[in-house]
Amino acid sequence: MRGEPQIQRLSPTGRALRLAVAFVVIGLLLAGTFFGDDDHFPFGPFRMYSTSNELNAPVRDTRIRAINAEGEEFPLGVGSTGLRRAEFEGQVHRFEENPELLSYVAEAYHRRHPDAPPLVQISIVVVWHEVRDGLATGNRTEEVIVTWHAEEDIP
């Protein structure tokens, strides 16, 4: 009993318009892929995991560490500041040029933890994993990229 379903056709104008939009979208996407960068979201290149690492080059692993007024040292994860590790990595050059920017990270931490002891120091640390023939050797070294110290007179 199943009859042929009806078909709702497009007008010639509607079809032409949709074809034009398709070409614009595809054109922007190709332009972003060939010439653009992440900055051109949403038309940037799909560059997830697109960089090469030499087999024996050390593998970089960024950590954010904080020390509070009571001398406790702990890692700053996304829940503690609202910034993800990848976001620290993305802005690391700004932090290197101007360590004072890390004070805003401390500010974010204090907004989220109003009752916690204030942070007196934040460091961005890179842990380098040694790799040989593409295999992790288990050896690692740490490099402090940038450190920020709070002003002396914290209330």
Binding site: P45, F46, Y49, S50, T51, S52, L55
Partner: peptide, 25 residues
Amino acid sequence: LAAWAKFRFGGIEWLWEATLTRAVL
């Protein structure tokens, strides 16, 4: 286009270098 991005940013050597090793580490 992700394949193209890998050649553009990683080069052809993306194929045999250590991107996935790094990711797993």
